[in-house]
Amino acid sequence: MPLILTNRQITTILHTLSSAELTRFTAALTAAFVALSTQPASVQQPLRTSLTTANGGTSLCMPAAFDGVTAIKTVALGPGHPPRGTLTLYSSATGELEAMLNAEEITGFRTALASLLLLQRRHATPGLEVRRVAVFGTGKQAEWAVRLLLKMFPGVGVTVVGRGTSGEVLQKLPAALGFECCVIGRAEDGSEEELEVLLAEVDAVFCCTPSCEPLFPMQWLRIEERPVYVSLIGSYKAHMVEVAPELLKATGVTVVVDSAKACLSEAGEVIQAGLDASQLVEIGAIFNTGAAAVVEGSCIFKCVGLGVMDLATGREITRIARDRGVGVNVDNFDG
């Protein structure tokens, strides 16, 4: 019978994942990425449908079918309001509804986790260890990047970069996170100089904002001196960019994407850099080459978000919820 899960129930599940449960999520996302790159016929996933409402809001619909499951996620972004949405899972064989999930936490969680898959492999490679990370943003995407960084990389130093004063930035982050970080308020005196020093020292940068202009000068990363990992997960439209498009064309930089087709249609940095499919490497293709495959040198991971990511994540959440006895089972839903 269908299982209904609220935002609070899903949040509790994701905040209390065991190491074994988190490993199941990473395995599910990896399998979905590999299938998308190596067996594209096994994944039915049209590009997302977007519409603009009369009040300037945006509504998105992201369908996908893979491994016996059909998933449809809908998201509504009203002006001045946080994103809200639902994820429904169906049996591809019978069409029966299997689960309906609140999607508020799912998007941030699955995107952040996807962006950490490559970094996890780099961390296990001598010379590419992750010791310090900068996270731009104070919203849900940034929150999940911080949560998962601290869970998957014990001892890593995290610096959150946000607009306003340090106090204002700290107010936007859940106090329950329980991590220590040096927050840089970009409106404070000397903050740009402090940010430049920070970016010259970090091993990875996570950009989690819907920005329409670069968040920092690309020279501050000093990629000609050392390998840096940059994750771009906040921008999702052609006019949005979190870094200078020129960074994607810099010597020695490998651009990895969740989907070449999707990024060539939706990723502002990729589009404005004038890249084509031959200059992009899908993450699934990397994982398909072996468990030890890693991108050496500087790497940019661009993720616009895919329906199959929601499918894989939603299915694992549903399995864990059933194991824990969480949620409401609806009897005779089709009756």
Rank of each mutant, 00 (worst) to 15 (best):
T52E: 12
S92K: 08
T88W: 08
G95M: 05
H81M: 09
K73A: 00
G78E: 13
G95W: 08
A64H: 02
T49W: 10
G95C: 04
N55L: 09
G56V: 12
A93T: 15
P40V: 00
A93Q: 12
T88L: 14
P79S: 06
P82H: 01
G85Q: 01
A54P: 09
S37T: 02
P63K: 06
G78P: 07
V75S: 03
G57E: 02
C61Y: 10
R48K: 15
Y90V: 05
P46Q: 08
I72H: 05
A41H: 12
T58N: 09
S42T: 11
S37I: 00
E96W: 07
T86K: 09
S37Y: 04
T52K: 12
V69R: 09
S92Y: 08
R84W: 00
Q39D: 15
S59K: 06
P82D: 01
G78L: 11
L87T: 02
L87A: 04
T53D: 04
S91V: 10
P83S: 10
M62K: 01
S37E: 06
T49S: 15
G80W: 03
L51K: 12
T49C: 12
A93G: 08
I72A: 05
G56N: 05
S37P: 10
S37K: 09
T88V: 13
T70G: 04
P79H: 07
A64K: 01
R84H: 00
T58Y: 03
P79E: 03
C61M: 14
R84L: 00
T52I: 11
P40L: 01
A65V: 14
S59C: 11
G80C: 00
P79T: 08
Q39T: 02
P40H: 07
T49Q: 14
T86E: 01
D67C: 04
S50Y: 06
A93P: 07
A41K: 11
V75C: 02
T38N: 13
S37C: 02
Q39G: 08
A71C: 11
S50K: 14
M62V: 10
A76S: 15
Y90C: 07
V75F: 01
N55Q: 13
T70K: 09
S92T: 15
E96H: 14
V75R: 03
Q39I: 00
T53Q: 04
V69F: 06
P46C: 12
P83L: 05
G80F: 02
D67S: 12
R84K: 13
T58M: 10
G85T: 01
T94L: 08
T38P: 06
T86G: 08
L60C: 07
T74N: 03
L87W: 01
I72C: 10
T38L: 11
S42A: 15
L89W: 04
T88I: 13
N55D: 15
P82K: 04
T74F: 00
R48V: 13
P83F: 00
V43Q: 03
G68N: 10
P40S: 09
P46I: 14
